[in-house]
Design a protein around this nucleic acid. Structure first.
Length: 831
RNA sequence: GCGGGCGUGGCGGAAUGGCAGACGCUGCGGUCUUAAAAACCGUUGGGGCAACCCGUGCGGGUUCGAGUCCCGCCGUCCGCACCA
């Protein structure tokens, strides 16, 4: 601190200057390393994780919004006696870094490096409680070698595999994408381009193996219901049956249905255009038509799928072949239509137009028969007059020996019967697909396998890890991995036979990195495995995970999958990674639209910090409204937080400057003071526990205003007043770390406020000894009486009936009913 | 279309079925100042001189009492969407 600054601080007792204060304490905290986490502390552990950011360059308002709250909570937990792990790192691999690097003609490694440095500094300005010694950067060999190691374990256990098939391809990003990265089956989640289908051989993780568990475990998680619902929908479990229909050529056509009870109503069958039996089933007279339709739907899936999905016009074509309904031996036509998806179930359906909307629309469009086999209880359906499918419950009809059965029972009995007849069996189908993890891009973890002409796919031995990503590759996207043209990387020898071999040139999806990164925070330098098992056992699972709702499916599903895999490998002792999840909403521009650089609606935090200080900005962000709601930014409101901080600072400075006094404090004053203090401690504590930061800030403001209002000059130096002021400082510490530290110092207390214990409250001290009793007549407030909180019902009646205002409004009427809510309210119901 | 959330002053929002609008912003009035800014004080849902009356998207209901619970609409946001 310069001499002038020292003078300013000293002179300015009562003057709050964030720019001086914040720099002073930031430097002190850094020097003293006060946020260093002790793994061997005997306090209970608390792992507070926030989603590690992608190193885009500078922290924007969203980062501040996302970070202020978890930081305050971590500080709160620390003051409450926990040993808190609150680490930070960077999601540094991936397409955005690579694209930005290409745009800026700079190597992604360099670009990433520069950005992380800048962002680290900015987190410092925020006053974040981060132990940077644990920083994890996913693009360092030290980290990604363990991606490769985990990949090899998954390869060994059959959870990683290579498969050819139709995959999503983004023509702009020149790479394949996972299903989860494609929006509405049309659009690249990264760049917004229309994606296309390509047949390629790719690497997958067998996440479907865990589909049931991923679904079942959701119930026990303390996560927002919204996120759980999204995951449930994405996993998409359907119970039903697999049925076999015989074809006239002697083969069987398998279908999946959730309504086996309606099989008597199946009047035709439909195959997806990509179904492998299409060629075989198509008769010569229909070949031209079918070929054209297949080609057309292939094109459509590339170009105008979206519009097709919206209008839902049914298209299709008859193959010329017939199948036999196994339950009634009826001959039914086999059609092809693109409303049947190859990727779900068996890629073929039995169509029951009377009881399925899509089948109904198709039957109407192509004049196929409709047969009612479920009758609603109070109605009689007739196929010729139906205007829509009947999908509700009812009684089975036209269904042989099952006629008269109610629907839920019918389903299970039909399944039993089909199984006995060997025509089908119960089946559960999921919407979830295996996770496609290979990418034809440069900036990612090399997949650690080699291709040998004689040995095939050979895993790289653990001892050869990491397979280093060469830094001197030409990485402009070409549609195949840039590593293909890097001869030194490509050419290798087979680990098994020693013959010359070729390395896998695809890299891993960055979501692989984020699927286990938090484990690494527990032991960032560990070299014998991805993480130190004893440290992981100590810290994980994560107690609280904070981040954006946009990761509701992708990252959070993958992370849960990885945790289960690591558990099955015996590496971790739990199967769910994140006990509690809280999502922040999005901060919008003032006019309520998304903040956008191009439209100039972006509000940068740095300028606001310069003008108002980091503490005021943090408070303002917490105060905007419920954290999970987000909302429009408001520049003006920040002055309110600044005023509050200035007032609080003034109160503290006055107390600090007052000469110590041993004079007795009036007992009534003392009771009032401790009541205010303890009520506030209670409110602030409860709000923090409940993650309600806006009302927590309101409680702090009310506390400071309350103290200001009851302040008496003669008591400024007393221990009683000082204790109340100290409570204010302690309660402010989580949300306003800088000014709290300054105020704590001003009071001459032991550094640091962030190592102090959270103030406890006593219920008796917080209790009122007089409360306002609301007196209503017929539900309208007519009087207010000051009474003792535990006033008896009879006592209340006496007081209320003595009230002139009450008597006036009773108007001599007869009190028919008397309602007394002790200490709160009386309602007189008058005839 | 299906599922979920949300509708409260000029604005952001607060309210275990019990005083609607805490707290903050804005606005208005004032103190200080040559002046302005800052700071501080008062005031700020609508109507009415007042007593009071009316007010939580709309329409019903339950209740002594509904912003809160139930039913039906309307609006809005989000998610899913031909998933058999």
């Amino acid at each position: 601190m310069t001499e002038q600054e020292t003078k300013d601080v000293l002179d300015g007792a009562g003057q709050y200057d964030p720019s001086v204060i914040e720099r002073r304490w930031r430097e002190r905290w850094e020097t003293d390393d006060i946020y260093r986490v002790d793994d061997d502390s005997d306090r209970p552990n608390w792992f507070s994780l926030t989603m590690y950011p992608y190193p885009s360059g500078t922290l924007h308002m969203g980062h501040w919004y996302a970070f202020s709250v978890p930081d305050a909570f971590a500080r709160f937990q620390r003051m409450r006696g926990f040993n808190v792990l609150f680490p930070m790192g960077f999601d540094a691999f991936g397409l955005p870094a690579e694209n930005a690097a290409i745009r800026h003609h700079i190597h992604p490694a360099r670009w990433t490096q520069e950005n992380t440095e800048q962002m680290r500094t900015q987190y410092g300005q925020m006053g974040a409680m981060i132990d940077w010694s644990r920083e994890v950067n996913s693009s360092t060999p030290d980290f990604y070698r363990w991606n490769q190691w985990i990949f090899l374990r998954m390869l060994e256990s059959g959870l990683a595999y290579r498969k050819a098939g139709p995959v999503w391809w983004c023509p702009t990003d020149q790479t394949v994408l996972a299903n989860e990265q494609v929006i509405d089956d049309t659009t690249c989640e990264r760049c917004g381009s229309l994606v296309i289908r390509r047949d390629l051989e790719q690497w997958f993780f067998r996440i479907t193996e865990y589909a049931d568990e991923l679904l079942a475990c959701l119930d026990e998680l303390d996560w927002p219901e919204r996120v759980k619902t999204m995951q449930r929908n994405w996993i998409g479990r359907s119970e039903g049956a697999r049925l076999r229909f015989n074809l006239e050529n002697g083969e069987a056509l398998e279908v999946f249905t959730t309504r086996p009870d309606t099989v008597w109503g199946a009047t035709f069958m439909v195959l997806a255009p990509e179904h492998p039996l299409v060629q075989e089933l198509t008769t010569d007279s229909h070949r031209a038509e079918v070929a054209e339709y297949v080609e057309q739907s292939r094109r459509r899936s590339d170009i105008d799928r979206l519009s097709t999905a919206e209008t839902r016009e049914k298209s299709g074509v008859f193959t010329g072949s017939y199948a036999v309904n196994p339950v009634n031996d009826e001959r039914i036509p086999v059609w092809i239509a693109d409303y049947v998806l190859m990727g779900y179930g068996t890629g073929a359906i039995m169509a029951v137009p009377a009881h399925d909307e899509r089948d109904f629309a198709f039957a109407r469009a192509f004049e196929l028969p409709i047969r009612v086999v479920i009758q609603p209880v109070n109605d009689e359906l007739d196929h010729s007059s139906m205007t829509e499918a009947y999908t509700g419950n009812g009684v089975m009809a036209n269904s042989g020996q099952f006629d008269g059965l109610r629907v839920p029972e019918g389903v299970s009995q039909v399944i039993e019967w089909l199984r006995a007849e060997e025509r089908g069996e119960p089946e559960v189908t999921f919407r979830l697909r295996d996770w496609l993890i290979s990418r034809q891009r440069y900036w990612g973890t090399p997949i650690p396998v080699v291709y040998c002409d004689s040995c095939g796919i050979v895993p790289v031995p653990d001892s050869d890890l990491p397979v280093l990503l060469p830094l001197d590759a030409e990485f402009t996207p070409t549609g195949q991995s840039p590593l293909v043209s890097h001869q030194e990387f490509l050419a290798t020898t087979c680990p098994t036979c020693g013959a010359s071999a070729r390395r896998e040139t695809d890299t891993m999806d960055t979501f692989v990195d984020s699927s286990w990164y938090w484990f690494r925070y527990t032991s960032p330098g560990y070299t014998d495995g991805p993480f130190d098992p004893s440290r992981v056992a100590k810290w994980t699972p994560v107690d609280l995970y904070c981040g954006g709702i946009e990761h509701a499916i992708l990252h959070l599903l993958y992370a849960r999958f990885f945790t289960k895999v690591l558990a099955d490998q015996g590496l971790v002792d739990h199967r769910e990674p994140f006990v509690r999840l809280r999502n922040q909403g999005m901060i919008l521009a003032e006019e309520g639209t998304k903040m956008s650089k191009s439209r100039g609606t972006q509000v940068g935090p740095d300028e606001l910090v310069r003008l108002h200080g980091a503490d005021a900005l943090r408070l303002h962000l917490m105060y905007l409204g419920p954290w999970d709601q987000g909302g429009p930014w408001n520049t003006r409101g920040i002055t309110g937080m600044e005023r509050f901080l200035r007032r609080a600072y003034g109160l503290v400075a006055e107390a600090a400057n007052a000469p110590q006094s041993t004079s007795d404090v009036d007992p009534a004053f003392q009771r009032e003071l401790s009541r205010l203090t303890h009520k506030t401690i209670k409110r602030v504590t409860q709000d923090l526990v409940d993650f309600q930061f806006n009302t927590m800030v309101a409680a702090l403001i009310e506390f400071s205003s309350g103290l200001q209002a009851m302040k008496r000059d003669e008591y400024l130096g007393t221990a009683e007043w000082r204790s109340a002021i100290e409570s204010l400082v302690l309660l402010m510490a989580p949300s306003s770390p800088y000014v709290a530290e300054e105020m704590w110092d001003l009071l001459g207390n032991t550094y640091s406020v962030h190592h102090q214990e959270w103030p406890a409250f006593e219920e008796e001290l917080a209790a009122d000894d007089q409360v306002e009793l609301i007196v209503q007549v017929n539900g309208k407030v007519r009087d207010r009486l000051m009474v003792v909180p535990d006033l008896s019902e009879d006592g209340a009646r006496e007081l209320v009936m003595a009230s002139a205002k009450v008597q006036e409004h009773l108007g001599g009427g007869h009190v028919r009913r008397w309602i007394y809510v002790p200490g709160k309210l009386v309602n007189l119901v008058v005839a």
